[in-house]
């Protein structure tokens, strides 16, 4: 026996039509905004001569790692390799995509994380959503992105944002909730306003945990580059995809290596950005 098929597909299509009809302007605005950010950042990165940018990156790493000369040297070497492999332009696009996705993801997840830490109700409401988001295979995010934004860098960024958000939100929430009770009491006992308490005690004390979330957010965004290229996002990820499709091992390997190099550099920078203080 065969059950009558529910018209679920039709219903979804109707919903999408409805959204496009009434919120089309919003989708267009988001699309234009993201496109501008990505293009602008990529343009900026490419406007700086590669050797200068490589030197700047090395100095930045040297500075945030508190003068780890070895790491700074490796950073320079890795970036030189990318340049030498003639992947520089693609790498800068990837970097622009990752940074824009991360910034948007953090701009949403950190305030939400703060709200979740401040209210058990919000926390309880967000938790199933986050669980759902994190158990979804990352491919699934491509579908709504394509539906609403078509193909290209923008839907790739949207999918990446959604994919990269949850850990930053969770860790912001956790970091604030883990601030020792006595420290919160200090803020209250000395007569802080809720705002002063947040900015002078809770956020600074939670900062190392929040930074771990930022770090994870960036790493997830990078890991999404290859997948996002399936819906037309450019950069190194697309190069890997093409390498796979053409069974061009050399090409796929070179682009993949470039992604790994960028990942390691971004990881080291974010891990060292804030000093860890002893908590007693």
């Amino acid at each position: 026996m065969q059950l009558p098929k529910l018209p679920l597909g039709d219903a979804v299509e109707a919903l999408v039509d409805w959204i496009e009809q009434y919120f089309g302007w919003l989708l267009d605005a988001v699309s234009a905004g993201l496109g501008f950010l990505i293009g602008g950042l990529q343009g900026l990165l490419l406007a700086i001569p590669a050797p200068v940018l490589i030197l700047l990156a090395a100095v930045l790493v040297w500075f945030v790692t508190r003068r780890d000369i070895k790491l700074a040297g490796l950073t320079a070497l890795g970036l030189l390799l990318i340049w030498d492999l003639q992947l520089w332009n693609l790498a800068m696009l990837t970097l622009a995509l990752v940074l824009v996705s991360t910034i948007v993801a953090l701009a949403i997840s950190i305030p939400l994380g703060i709200a979740a830490a401040g209210s058990d109700a919000i926390n309880a409401a967000l938790r199933p959503v986050l669980d759902f988001m994190q158990t979804m295979p990352s491919f699934v995010y491509l579908i709504p992105a394509v539906i609403f934004f078509g193909l290209g860098n923008v839907p790739g960024t949207i999918a990446t944002v959604v994919f990269a958000m949850p850990p930053a939100l969770r860790l912001t929430n956790l970091g604030i909730r883990q601030v020792p009770t006595e420290l919160v009491e200090v803020a209250d006992a000395f007569g802080s306003t809720p705002r002063q308490k947040l900015f002078k005690v809770q956020l600074p004390v939670a900062l190392p945990t929040i930074m771990a979330g930022v770090n994870q957010c960036i790493m997830l965004a990078l890991s999404m580059t290859v997948i996002a290229s399936m819906i037309g996002a450019g950069g190194l990820g697309y190069q890997v995809l093409v390498g796979i499709q053409r069974v061009d091992i050399g090409m796929g390997f070179e682009a993949g290596l470039a992604i790994v190099i960028i990942a390691i550099i971004l990881d080291r920078i974010t891990q060292n950005l804030v000093p860890q203080y002893e908590n007693r």
């Binding site: 020792p180 006595e182 420290l183 200090v186 006992a189 004390v205 900062l207 002893e278 908590n279 007693r280």
Partner: peptide
């Protein structure tokens, strides 16, 4: 009202 805490409760980042 001033308060002094058992585990000092100094702000570690300051």
């Amino acid at each position: 009202l001033g308060m002094i805490f058992q585990n000092f409760a100094l702000l570690p980042h300051r």
